[in-house]
Amino acid sequence: MDRNFNLKIKAALKPRKTPRQQRSSRVVDRILDAALVLTREQGTMAPTTLAIAQRAGLSVGSVYQYYPNKEAILLDLARRWLSAFPPVIATRASANAPDNRDALRRDLREFIDEIAALYLDNRNLVPVLEVMMLNPDLKPVVAEYDEKIAGLYAAWLMRLNPALDAARAARIGFLFMEVGHTSLIMAVRGEHTVFDAVVSDLETMWLALLTSHLEPA
């Protein structure tokens, strides 16, 4: 998709104003909380601005003071979750690489646990991402975050193995992002025992894939 078109989309979906006072922040929180509850209740059908306003106990005009449309509300809600991933991965990408297999396994499990915690703590936002992926205006925004996350995974891989070429690191980084996301989305929908089992399975898969790419090609 044309980059200029993407920029126009994102400009149209930006909040109308950033809350600078505590009262304004509370209003925005009410709007986002209402949108989250409605999205969970309605599944993949995005709630209307009117429904969000009614659930938040606000007038539609009050909502429009902060957001131009319902897509902007969903985007702001999802950004709170999506923006949490890059700092976690970037920290790992800049840390010293483990110097033996046991250290690698421990480091990898800690890394996966950090990522898994973001899904577990924000599991109520999963329906929001699904709505965004079904919306042609919002899907490019999710794809942009995915690209950044995959790139950070690639940087982490090249930290583990400096001899790894960029193209191979990018391919594996994309796999880590996609497989991890799909697995953890499934996990948060199950019981805690299922979640723990999926996280352990993810560790096994990632370790096997990592090991085969740690030696120079």
Rank of each mutant, 00 (worst) to 15 (best):
V60S: 09
Y64C: 02
Y67D: 12
N69V: 05
K70P: 00
A72N: 05
L75E: 08
R79P: 00
S83D: 14
P87Q: 06
P87M: 05
I89R: 11
A90R: 15
A90H: 11
T91S: 13
T91Q: 14
T91I: 00
A97G: 04
P98S: 05
A103F: 01
L104D: 06
L104F: 02
L104V: 03
R105T: 03
R106T: 09
E110R: 11
F111Q: 04
F111K: 01
E114D: 15
A117T: 07
L118Q: 08
L118M: 04
Y119W: 14
Y119K: 05
Y119H: 13
L120K: 12
N122A: 09
N124H: 11
L125C: 06
L129W: 04
E130N: 10
V141K: 00
V141Q: 09
V142A: 12
A143G: 06
E144A: 14
Y145C: 13
E147R: 14
G151H: 11
Y153N: 14
L157N: 07
M158S: 00
L160A: 04
L160S: 06
N161P: 00
P162T: 05
L164C: 10
L164W: 01
L164V: 08
D165G: 09
A170V: 05
G173V: 01
F174Y: 08
F176D: 09
M177Y: 12
G180N: 07
G180M: 07
H181K: 13
S183N: 10
I185E: 13
V188H: 04
R189N: 12
G190F: 10
G190K: 12
G190P: 11
E191Y: 08
E191M: 12
